[in-house]
Design a protein around this nucleic acid. Structure first.
Lengths: 203, 203
DNA sequence: ACCTGAACACCGTTCAAGT
DNA sequence: ACCTGAACACCGTTCAAGT
């Protein structure tokens, strides 16, 4: 007798199916308030099955957050690793990619930084983020050497940039940066203010 | 017969008691995941009683958020309304007060900007915030006239400042701005970067 | 090894009924 | 007017038992 292909019960990889369905629900429900039972239902599996792959709901959420950081890291590198552009252009591109990731995946972005979602999510956030922001660190260092950025401790500069992008992204997600209230192009304008703080004054 | 004093059932103002107990729980649980039933239990009332004062849990959370915005507004005004200081000093004080409010009330601060907590919370956030940030608008306008700030659209500047403070506050709350990772005094350093972007260069 | 079904201790919310 | 008690339809999580 031939061995049946090792497709365990349903589709061979429940873990991945759970993560993908959870990502869908995260986007649909605009948050991590979706239920584990609903995830199981959609995947077509009993509500107890997920517990064979994740110790609890928080662990599943943490897995989503990790995916988010990896994706964001990829997009930042794609935007910031310069194919012969100026440091400034690369920096702008990276900052823009960061904010657009947040706007395209609002619920995921919030989850990535949400201590409320069971802590697990943000436990490793710290390390993941600093990896993710490596592109910015490089650009700031190069920009300082090229004389386009003020000479300041890079760690402090990257913290300021990160905070600015994080704040803008979240405010934009919540719809609090509406053009009527805050000027025509809030994201661009805020980025310009940030750059004025980073750029070295002409000698 | 004397009328008994109109203390309805328990302490005369269940609504306020619910809000105050909920604020305590919000701080204790580090988030709005506390249960309405637990609030009722602590107040000493049946779990159905809150529904006579709030249509649902989201409405109670919204009331907490409103309280938060009012408190933040008061603290900003106290810090920023200048008893004869320089615009720059007043601005620093206001920014610092903003971030310290967030660090002192992390769960409340998150709730105030949390669309997940039933939307109701952030529905009015937008208007409340712009009121709250009025102090900054004034300071930026005065600073521009005094020549200490770059002449830029004030709405764009205030958006940039707000985003910076919001981002710093949230990152600090999540513990992602640890000095080891990001330099000695991340908040001060980021504020300095912000100010370099706002301040007019010497002529 | 991987999944199911029943069960436990909870929720948020509703509603008739009490004082 | 303000609150209670029982009830409904859910959760997250556990665990013996199935294949």
């Amino acid at each position: 007798m031939e061995q049946a292909p090792p497709r365990p019960y349903h589709h061979g990889d429940l873990r991945r199916a759970l993560i993908e369905t959870a990502l869908t629900l995260l986007a649909e429900e605009q948050g991590w308030q979706f239920t584990l039972r609903e995830v199981a239902r959609r995947v077509g599996v009993s509500h107890a099955a997920p517990y064979k792959h994740f110790p609890d709901k928080g662990a599943l959420l943490a897995a989503l957050a990790v995916q988010g950081f990896e994706q964001l890291g990829r997009e930042l590198r794609a935007a910031g690793e310069p194919p012969s552009r100026s440091v400034l252009a690369a920096f702008r591109a990276a900052a823009s990619a960061y904010m657009q990731f947040g706007l395209r995946n609002p619920a995921l972005y919030r989850l990535m930084f949400s201590a409320e979602a069971g802590d697990a999510a943000s436990v490793h956030a710290s390390e993941r983020v600093l990896q993710t922001l490596g592109v910015l660190v490089d650009l700031l260092a190069r920009g300082q050497q090229a004389g386009v950025f003020r000479r300041r401790p890079v760690q402090a500069q990257v913290a300021a940039c990160w905070a600015q992008m994080h704040g803008l992204t979240l405010l934009a997600i919540e719809g609090l940066l509406l053009p009527q209230k805050v000027g025509a192009k809030p994201l661009e304008a805020a980025l310009a203010t940030l750059l004025e703080g980073l750029q070295a004054p002409p000698p």
